[in-house]
Design a protein around this nucleic acid. Structure first.
Lengths: 148, 148
DNA sequence: TATTAAATGAGAATAGTTTTCAACTAATTT
DNA sequence: AAATTAGTTGAAAACTATTCTCATTTAATA
């Protein structure tokens, strides 16, 4: 389906889906494609529009279902904006953090974890069992700084 | 109006409101009271119920308005849960981070910032201008570990 | 190519949030 | 203490976001 020449991201998604016995549908690959191409985080609505541009009519429910599944599979990450909105960005399951431009919502990954050397002893002393952490940096990207 | 004996949190909120020329209504102080008493993060619905218990009928819109305002004023912080839900917790504007129990949604503050010693040079090299960061640790608190 | 389990689209249903506006109230002034 | 006034509230409507249902379609496999 879709295309003959696929980028690594699409192959990666195909592979993850196949391993779980899930289908690589045109809609799912289109979501990957759009997220990958955009270079920034996209809202549900933006993703929906993008998929419709690629495939013609596509149900919004499919986008919701796909993104939820992709998040579980580690194919996308959901970002939380200060205003309560959400953005989605492609991910290959690595432990990366995100620097988000609050103006254009561009996403810039960085793999060094700011909390890498943090001593969790004080936290764990209280019996707390750490599972995960979520770090997001907010600011303005170079372009938006200039434009302002 | 409300109570004769106020805790520091309520006085703090009164003060912040007064400075901005905003009114210290029973509804607003009730929100502070509930957040402070609960010792964990609360959802909008839980806060609404709590305020209704204290004051009798209270509009849900007021809760939304109050929390939005309080967030702007730094009186509450909004937490983002992995499932997309939100929780609110009292704050006095200090720079603290939160450890959140994914089971009971209890919130445990810690003032040491995990990212304190992180070198943002690589980020800033790309022209990114940092404004803020958001860090949240997820896990299970001692009680929920035992209960499981 | 036939089979089958998974996925989709459409729209209804539900949940979450914001807006509007007349009535009300905290804080200030007289 | 009463009058003033600007900010605030409740209620319902309006709007937005998300999930569900089910008949139809499709990817993967045999």
């Amino acid at each position: 389906m879709m295309k003959d020449f696929e980028c690594t991201q699409e192959s990666y998604a195909r592979e993850v889906l196949r391993e779980k016995g899930l289908k690589s549908t045109a809609q799912r690959l289109a979501v990957v494609h759009i997220l990958h191409m955009s270079g920034k985080s996209l809202s549900i609505g933006e993703i929906h529009c993008g998929v419709k541009d690629l495939l013609g009519n596509t149900g919004l429910a499919t986008i919701y279902r796909t993104l939820e599944m992709f998040e579980d599979l580690g194919i996308v990450k959901r970002l939380h904006f200060p205003d309560g909105g959400h953005g989605y960005t492609f991910s290959q399951g690595e432990h990366v953090h995100h620097m988000v431009c609050v103006d254009c919502r561009g996403v810039f990954d960085f793999s060094e974890c700011p909390a890498e050397n943090f001593d969790y002893a004080s936290v764990e002393k209280q019996g707390f069992r750490m599972k995960d952490h979520f770090i997001q940096l907010f600011g303005q990207c170079g372009k938006c700084v200039e434009a302002a």
